[in-house]
Amino acid sequence: MTKPAAHLETAIVEQDTHPMADLLRMDRMPHIWCSGCGLGTGLTCFIMALKETGIPEDKVAVVSGIGCTGRVAGYLNLDSFHTTHGRGIPFATGLALANPDLRVVVYSGDGDLVAIGGNHFIHSARRNMDLLVICVNNFTYGMTGGQAGPTTPISAKASTAPYGSYDYPFNIPYLAIASGATYVARWTSLHMRRLKNSMREALPKKGFRVIEIICPCPTAFARKNRLGSGLDLMKHYHDNSIIKHGADPREADIDMNGKVVCGTFLDIERPTFRDFQTENIATQLGGE
């Protein structure tokens, strides 16, 4: 790199000058996520989306389960709850029902939300609970070292699938829609602007909303499957993702080397748990 000196002078600043510093717990930075992990990119999108919605920061609560994505709650400078493995949704259910002024976001990983927390996920969708669920899908349990999970594609290697996974994975948009979610979108970490717009769109909505983020895990998933670095995975998304709004979610399965169908699969309205509850009680009990 031989460049004129003037071009090599880049302003170096302290962390708290970063435009997102107000919504981050900068005293906990740098975060624990690996180099090339896409989790941070999803989080910048979330922060920017939140700012763009204008929803007061005090009225947003983030609930996480366990895992790499579970750490999101600990980095956001909002009311944030890091619960037990898979239980973010039921915790958030109580929080949202007790305090209807809050916009409650459950931000967690694929293993947390659709394996150990799978029952909570489908039932919360069935109830159309007022929750925005951001599910970061990296196809593996990253924090524990790359075990096979509920989204690991068939034939992908994992520390508990050394011969390749022989276990059908969940297709999260299909699962969410079949269970009753009202807003379902999928983006990769590379679709920053579209992801941000999707989050901005979903944040003020009511009902059970799911945004899946396909995210590189260079340390566990990519290494075991020889997929290269985080950047290589971003390039893979660039070459292999198809944007198809309103796509049939049954066609959104993710294979090891196949296409990743992205877009907004569903955006409808139906009464939420609270709508039904309030209406039913008012009809039955009268009065107020």
Binding site: M1, L8, V13, Q15, C34, S35, G230, L231, M234, K235
Partner: peptide
């Protein structure tokens, strides 16, 4: 104008690769 929080960087080079104006490079 570009600002870099040097100590927070983990060198993934996402910014270098995707900057639409090719403004960035990884330093040595």
């Amino acid at each position: 104008k570009i600002y870099v929080v040097r100590e927070q960087c983990k060198g993934c080079s996402f910014c270098v690769e995707y900057c639409p104006k090719d403004v960035l490079e990884l330093s040595q």
